[in-house]
Design a protein around this nucleic acid. Sequence first.
DNA 1: ATGGCTTAGTTCCTAAGA
Length: 256
Amino acid sequence: MKIVSYNVNGIKARLDRLIEYLTEQQPDIVCLQELKSSDETLPVPAIEAAGYGAVWHGQKGFNGVAILARGQQPVERQRGLAGDPEDAHSRYIEAEVGDLIIGGLYLPNGNPQPGPKFDYKLRWMERLNARAAELLAEERPAILAGDFNVIPNDDDSFSVRAMAEDALMQPESRERYRMLLAQGWTDALRTRFPKGGVWTFWDYQAGAWQRDAGFRIDHLLLSPQAADRFTGAGVDKEYRGREKASDHAPTWVTLR
DNA sequence: ATGGCTTAGTTCCTAAGA
């Protein structure tokens, strides 16, 4: 089965592209980020017509996450992360699809750093790590999938120099991502491509796509019970080159 | 100057993204 993370950068602007992707690739589970839509204006009928059940956590203007499942309705377990009652951002949703636990997330960007947005990012990562530890304790097949807004290693970016001051590759961001992995999660793309050089995002600016100047920030992390079923991982890069594309490409893992 | 973007909302500018 194919499980996808896809930051669509506006689901209303991307609807035709998304339906096209679902139709062509027939993924089993899709975690969406950056819906940029309130719950009231989500294109739920179009997604259902494409054959997908979904759980949604929308927000007007920015953020927003969802989990789609082909031919079935995901069963929601949680939305949002514990630890900050003031946090109103729609960035986390968790559901069961069959025997799988899926955590779909849109981690804060954190720029500019240093500053309050970066502080929020780091705090949010600590709250995510706390939830991730709880998931592992269930000892079940689980996947954390989404736009993590972290470039884990230097070889996950086209240019260390260009991104040196960016929140996505600060030591504090990387340390928290490493601590998450150290709990026992497997970074599926890294396992499949140990040498790096695999991008999931290309900026709209500065001809980044044409120069292949990207980086890897969309990740799928597997619990040990999910990693036992691992068969492959990759990026559906072609979709980044299509008309009216998101700046992220669909990123996926396959499990037995 | 990343050789100059894209989306959405309070819309003809501003905020946010990464």
